[in-house]
Design a protein around this nucleic acid. Structure first.
Length: 822
DNA sequence: CTCAACCAATTTTTT
DNA sequence: ATTGGTTGAG
């Protein structure tokens, strides 16, 4: 807060909101080093050099916005318009933050030290840790991830018997999250709620209890991190002023995906410092007297693209960006429409699809790199068949010179990754799944972290409850409630109650177990948080973790187990210890609290290192902001993309279309759209329909290796709708088109068709009402002869369980399988 | 209190 | 199909 801005000039009688385009300040903009602007188009230059109160950069997909943003920051630093510490840049993921930090560092060197480049959540944690004592928390508070808060909600729902009113834990959790994103707390919601509705009343009770439990546990959930920071700023203007004076340049990436609380946070930070007025400001202390009565608000730069808004489901409000000019009068708007990423064919497809969203501002991406390859379509018989095509095509591309890490496979839902994974393993395609079931969400990792939390934040009863009987110590629900009640009676924490094992009135065996756990926690605490106040050694976290896992008996219990999965769990724990060591190396001063913070906020810790050399698999949401030479969009089916659940929600289908658009625009040179005719879910096989988005792509852009009509017999309607062009495939590829880059062997003229002709029925087929019964013999085009074991299902979903002589048991969809009765 | 067996629900996307 | 939760026996 003592930073003095080299650019700050006492602004005489500046109104609260600066009006009009004031143009570049004298001395800035003109002196930007030319190398920062090298290779930029006029709009991009403007976005880098414009100086003013508010700037909106509307950046279409692939328009070079990251480059613009980093150069903008670099130019502020180079021209000495700002110290690093005066810059706050918000990105959507930690990974993006790391990359931006790296790129700025490349441009300006060590001058970049001290900037805050982080996610909303990380930035708020930093602020909250600093200010926690102001409002009843300690700086070692715990961060609850959604799993933690679900566990808490679950307990409270049970305690309040809220399920009797039709409130499921997940519904309650979702509603609480939504309310917090709107900055509504339990009290304010209770005032506006309809209290005649008993379900509402119970919900308010649970919400209130949930918040009290968090407070008691000295914990914040994800949503609180933002919302409580806003409350903090509103309740303590002098605290807010510290940050308003400090951050003179605020930049927010992916602005279209900000929710209301994030929007409010930005507003709080961009108010002029010292302007709050009212009684509190008078008690604000000396600073008010020292500083000019009114100072300039920080400058705000936001970057976004409303066509890429895909997080409405978690409260993102597209109006934040669409009404930016109204919120910040006089804001400058720069449009970046030239795309430097994809070929024209890919862009044309993207433009065609997104133009079906009616409530958008028309924006057309263009490029000057040429048409490029056609988009390849493929329809598999099953999800495995689809996966096989993807795996084979990846190998073809790889032989043609595309590195694995320049290819990615996207899907709508995480569950779709299974089939891909199975096939990729068999085909020996190196792959890496991004996101999904995260390392830090595995049970054993959460247990280990709960041990650490129990040390770092003894007030966190959730963590204590989690570990108290892991490994098995003979402590069940009854004993836990006994301890809990004892702690309440004695006005001490659950953790401290363990120290009085003999007072609890439990059996001697359990007493001993409790005393032992208490001793282990105390020993770890001495190691990681020495009472003497001296700084623990950097290795303390890793050693403490090791100590906890060993002396608690956790490791031993896993080793003694005969469950084969427990071996993998031990490996995971070893990896966690390794992560702690690595953390110590990078942060010699890092404490246990810092470690837990990092772990709580980093989505997938290992995504930076070993993604190289592997194909990336991820959901389309995760893909935002990334780009690859070749992209496979899989499962392009109705009910998947657009997802079935989205149909019922207002704006749902449109958001799905944006999601599809995001997926398409990730591709630089090659795009594959694949689907399957049948998909198994819940162990049931069902017939899938091609996604409507396929029909929105002009047929001349698409080259079907195998169209839905090729696979599906009732192809009449579908093939018409989907521009199936069986037989004309030869014209689309195999020639010496523009795709020279990967060599001519890249696109095998007909091999892939031949290859898959074996696997997939290449001709139109409809078995209609073929009568089959157990015991019948059949012949399958691929599998040979076999005998029917059983028939299950009804109508179009009738499934034959067939024992083949050569390949064993198979399940076949009677209606479309290439089979004949013998 | 623990374990085995059975049953239900699950699959939208994430910091 | 998998997983988590519940139930009842030991």
């Amino acid at each position: 807060m003592t930073d003095v801005s080299p650019a700050a000039r006492p602004a005489a009688s500046v109104p609260l909101i600066v009006d009009g385009d004031r143009g570049p300040r004298p001395g800035s903009g003109t002196r930007v080093d030319e190398d920062l602007l090298a290779g930029l188009n006029p709009e991009q230059r403007e976005a880098v050099t414009y100086r003013g109160q508010a700037l909106l950069i509307v950046a279409g997909a692939g328009s070079g916005k990251t480059s613009v943003l980093t150069r903008r920051i670099a130019s502020l630093l180079r021209n000495k318009e700002a110290w690093p510490s005066q810059i706050l840049a918000i990105t959507f993921t930690n990974k993006a933050a790391g990359e931006m930090r790296e790129r700025v560092h490349q441009l300006v060197g060590d001058r970049s030290q001290g900037m805050w480049i982080s996610t909303f959540h990380s930035a708020c944690v930093r602020i909250l840790r600093r200010e926690a004592e102001q409002f009843g928390f300690t700086r070692s508070f715990t961060i609850y991830d959604s799993g933690d808060s679900r566990a808490l909600v679950k307990r409270l729902v049970k305690e309040h018997e809220a399920d009797a009113y039709g409130l499921t834990p997940s519904a309650v959790q979702g509603k609480i999250s939504k309310l917090k994103n709107e900055l509504a707390d339990a009290e304010s919601y209770a005032r506006s709620a309809n209290m005649n509705d008993p379900a509402e009343r119970v919900f308010c009770d649970v919400f209130g209890a949930y918040q009290r439990e968090l407070q008691r546990a000295n914990a914040f959930d994800f949503d609180d991190l933002i919302a409580q920071t806003v409350y903090l700023f509103r309740a303590f203007p002098q605290v807010a002023d510290v940050y308003r004076r400090r951050f003179r340049h605020i930049l927010v990436d992916e602005y279209q995906d900000t929710n209301h609380s994030q929007y409010a946070l930005i507003h709080e930070l961009t108010r002029p410092p010292g302007s709050d007025g009212g009684p509190i400001a008078e008690s604000g202390g000396m600073m008010i007297f020292d500083a000019p009565a009114t100072e300039e608000a920080a400058s705000l730069t936001v970057v976004g693209d409303s066509d890429q808004s895909i997080y409405a489901f978690r409260g993102a409000d597209i109006r934040n960006i669409s009404e930016f000019e109204r919120d910040f009068p006089g804001a400058k708007v720069v449009l970046l429409e030239q795309n430097y990423r994809s070929t024209q064919n890919i862009l044309s497809a993207a433009n065609a699809v997104i133009s079906h969203n009616f409530d958008r501002k028309d924006k057309r991406l263009w490029t000057d790199v040429g048409a490029g390859e056609k988009i390849v379509g493929f329809t598999g018989y099953s999800q495995h068949d689809e996966a096989q095509f993807v795996a084979d095509e990846i190998e073809v591309l790889h032989k043609g010179g595309v590195p694995y890490d320049q290819m990615a496979v996207f899907y709508r839902t995480n569950s779709q990754s299974r089939a891909l994974e199975e096939i990729f393993i068999r085909a020996a395609v190196p792959y890496k799944i991004m996101g999904g079931t995260k390392f830090y969400e595995r049970a054993e990792i959460k247990d280990a972290l709960a041990y650490l939390v129990a040390v770092a934040n003894p007030a966190d009863e959730m963590a204590m409850r989690r570990i108290i009987n892991k490994p098995r110590r003979g402590i069940g629900d009854v004993t836990i409630e006994t301890i809990s009640r004892y702690a309440a009676d004695e006005q001490i924490t659950f953790r401290d109650a363990l120290g009085n094992a003999s007072d609890l009135g439990v059996g001697p065996k359990i007493q001993a177990a409790i005393a032992h756990l208490d001793a282990v926690l105390a020993e770890a605490s001495d190691l990681m948080l020495p009472a003497s106040g001296e700084l623990p050694p950097p290795t303390a976290v890793a050693e403490g973790l090791q100590l906890l896992l060993t002396k608690s008996g956790y490791y031993d219990a896993l080793r003694a187990s005969r469950d084969p999965q427990d071996e993998a769990r031990i490996e995971n724990l070893d990896e966690l210890v390794a992560v702690a060591r690595e953390f110590a190396r990078n942060n010699p001063e890092g404490t246990i609290v810092d470690f837990l913070t990092e772990v709580a906020l980093v989505s997938d810790a290992d995504d930076l290192e070993d993604a190289s050399g592997s194909v990336s698999l991820m959901t389309m949401h995760t893909a935002k902001g990334l780009e690859y030479d070749a992209v496979f969009l899989t499962g392009v089916e109705e009910d998947l993309i657009p997802h079935r659940i989205s149909a019922g929600e207002p704006g749902g289908p449109q958001e799905e279309r944006r999601l599809f658009y995001v997926g398409v625009t990730r591709a630089r040179k090659r795009l594959y759209l694949t689907l399957a005719m049948t998909r198994a879910q819940f162990g049931e096989v069902s017939v899938a329909m091609p996604s409507r988005f396929l029909q929105e792509i002009p047929s001349e852009l698409l080259d079907w290796r195998q169209s839905p009509g090729d696979v599906n017999s009732r192809g009449g309607t579908q093939s018409r709708a989907l521009n199936a062009r069986r037989g004309s495939a030869g014209s689309g590829f195999g020639g010496s088109g523009s795709g020279r880059r990967y060599g001519d062997d890249l696109v095998p003229k007909s091999t892939s068709l031949e290859k898959f002709a074996n696997r997939v029925p290449a001709k139109v087929r409809d078995n209609g009402d073929m009568e089959l019964a157990p015991g019948d013999r059949i012949r399958h085009d691929d599998f040979g002869e076999g005998r029917i074991d059983a028939i299950t299902g009804e109508g179009a979903k009738r499934v034959a369980h067939v024992r083949f002589e050569k390949v064993g048991m198979k399940k076949l969809l009677v209606k479309i399988a290439p089979i004949a009765k013998l």
